[in-house]
Amino acid sequence: MTEIITPRDTRMKRIIGHVKGKEPGPVLVFFGGVHGNEPSGIQALEHVFKELNRDPLPVKGNIYGIAGNIPALLQKKRYLDRDLNRIWLKEEIREMEEGTPKNVTSEDQQMLAILEVIRDLLTAHQEPFYFIDFHTTSSKTLPFITINDAMINRKFARQFPVPIILGIEEYLEGPVLNYINEYGYVAVGFESGQHASEEAKINSIAFFWLCLVNSGALAGESLKQYKNCLQQLKQSAANNRSFYEITERYAIEPQDSYTMEPGFESFELVPKGTTLASHNGKTVATTKKGILFMPLYQKQGAEGFFMIKRIPKWILGISSLLRKVKADYLLASLPGVSWKDKSKSQLIVNLRVARYYSKAIFHLLGYRNRTLDSEHLLIKNREKVARNELYKDAPWF
Rank of each mutant, 00 (worst) to 15 (best):
K201S: 01
C211V: 08
N203V: 02
S215E: 07
L210T: 07
N228W: 11
I205V: 04
F208V: 05
V213N: 03
G220T: 12
L210A: 04
I202Y: 00
G216Q: 09
I205W: 00
L210H: 01
K234H: 12
S215D: 06
N239E: 08
N228V: 15
A238H: 10
K201G: 00
K234G: 09
F208G: 03
E221M: 12
L233K: 09
L218G: 09
K234I: 10
N240V: 05
Q231I: 12
A238W: 04
Q225T: 14
A217C: 13
A217N: 09
K201H: 02
G216W: 04
C229L: 10
V213A: 06
L218R: 08
F208R: 05
K224N: 14
C211R: 03
S236V: 08
I205M: 01
K227W: 13
C211W: 00
C211E: 02
G216S: 09
A217S: 14
L212P: 05
N214A: 07
G220Q: 10
Y226W: 11
F207E: 01
S215N: 09
Q235P: 12
N203M: 01
A237N: 08
A206F: 00
K227F: 12
S236I: 06
Q235C: 12
C211P: 04
A238C: 08
L210Q: 05
Q231R: 15
G220R: 10
A217I: 09
S236L: 04
Q232N: 13
I205Y: 00
V213I: 07
W209R: 08
Q231K: 15
K227A: 13
S236Q: 08
I202P: 00
S222G: 13
A237E: 06
I202S: 00
N214I: 07
N239D: 12
E221K: 15
K201F: 02
W209G: 02
S215M: 06
S204K: 03
L223T: 15
L230S: 14
K234F: 06
Y226E: 14
F208E: 01
Q225S: 15
Q225I: 14
Q235E: 10
C211L: 04
Q232C: 11
W209D: 03
K234M: 10
S204F: 00
K201E: 01
W209P: 06
K227N: 14
K224L: 11
N240H: 06
K224M: 12
S215F: 02
S215Y: 03
L218Y: 07
G220Y: 02
S222V: 11
C229W: 03
N214D: 07
L233V: 11
F207G: 03
K234S: 13
L223S: 12
L218T: 13
Q231T: 15
Q232R: 14
C229T: 13
G216E: 07
C229Y: 05
Q225E: 12
F207Q: 02
L223K: 14
N240S: 07
K234N: 12
L218K: 10
C211Q: 02
A237R: 07
N214W: 03
K201I: 02
V213E: 00
I205G: 00
Q232A: 11
G220F: 03
F207M: 04
S204V: 02
G216F: 01
E221I: 15
I205S: 00
K234Q: 13
S204R: 02
A238S: 13
A237H: 05
C211S: 05
K224T: 15
Q235A: 12
A219P: 11
S215I: 09
C229Q: 11
L210W: 01
K201A: 02
Q225H: 10
S236Y: 05
L212V: 08
F208N: 03
A206R: 00
Y226R: 14
